[in-house]
Design a protein around this nucleic acid. Structure first.
Lengths: 145, 145
DNA sequence: GTGTAAAACGTAATTTTTACGATTTACAAC
DNA sequence: GTTGTAAATCGTAAAAATTACGTTTTACAC
């Protein structure tokens, strides 16, 4: 997903092209990582001071529905990032400090064929959590002697 | 994990053996599936009408820390189930309707060796969501012609 | 330019989780 | 068995995340 694709997706589905939606798309394009609703709100309020939380949550849901962003949750909060990788299915290494990700070209579901009996699969989640090199450096710098 | 093991774990770590903790252990032992804090609260309030939410959350955290229960989250809520499988690492098929699980003897982390560069792994999550046979029947019964 | 449905505002309600001073209780020592 | 004490629980409130909704504003088709 890129900037133009995202706005095209909105148009194609008949949604209006507002400054706030453009701003949100730009935000996700700029920050290439998972963001919480709160982070999105705060970032966007720099440009739109009186921005309503309703607008953020509503558009986050819409964007996820349209595949503009992909959502997940960890540590009790829902998080979103620009939908990467086009159509090819993948998973992520996720830095729990900053939300940055690395793509994983491996899906464990390939090994599941025929496994479950009497269980209708509707989805799956495979995520590896940790600390990215960037955040490791930051921690070392702080804690260093 | 079983009933006696759970109480032994509490004793061994010097925690007090209260009626409420026993009741919670029994609850998880009885319901062999993921429960939300709210469900735990409501079930336990049948036996202890004035039960405080503080007690539930505090003990859920403690139980998870001691390995008596294992926690996860989906659909915006934290959930807990009796810790199964002793020491051998495993994952679950999870019914998102009722929280019942099936054990999966497969861990995708085996395929990751050497994969991530400059990324310190601290945890991972692999869960398959769906509808168990029990809940499929219920839906069919309701929606059936 | 106008009309209209969609979007956003402003604010409050809901829901989940955490916090904390006061009270009660488990349990060890006597 | 009684007693002392730290831990556990209560009762309630605060905090945090999310959802809801009537009103106002705005994008955009005509």
């Amino acid at each position: 997903m890129n900037y133009r694709e995202a706005l095209d997706t909105l148009k194609r589905h008949g949604y209006k092209y507002t400054g706030k939606r453009e701003s949100m798309v730009q935000l996700f394009n700029r920050k290439d990582r998972y963001l919480t609703a709160k982070e999105v709100l705060e970032e966007m309020q720099k440009e739109y001071p009186g921005l309503s939380v309703d607008t953020v949550y509503r558009n986050l849901s819409l964007f996820e529905e349209l595949g503009i962003v992909e959502g997940t949750e960890w540590e009790g909060e829902r998080r979103y990032r620009f939908h990467c990788g086009g159509d090819h299915h993948h998973h992520h290494l996720i830095c729990t400090e900053c939300g940055r990700t690395k793509q994983l070209n491996l899906c464990p579901m390939n090994a599941i064929l025929g496994e479950p009996e009497g269980f209708e699969i509707t989805g799956h989640k495979f995520e590896i959590y940790g600390t990215c090199s960037h955040c490791q450096e930051q921690t070392e710098a702080k804690g260093g002697s």
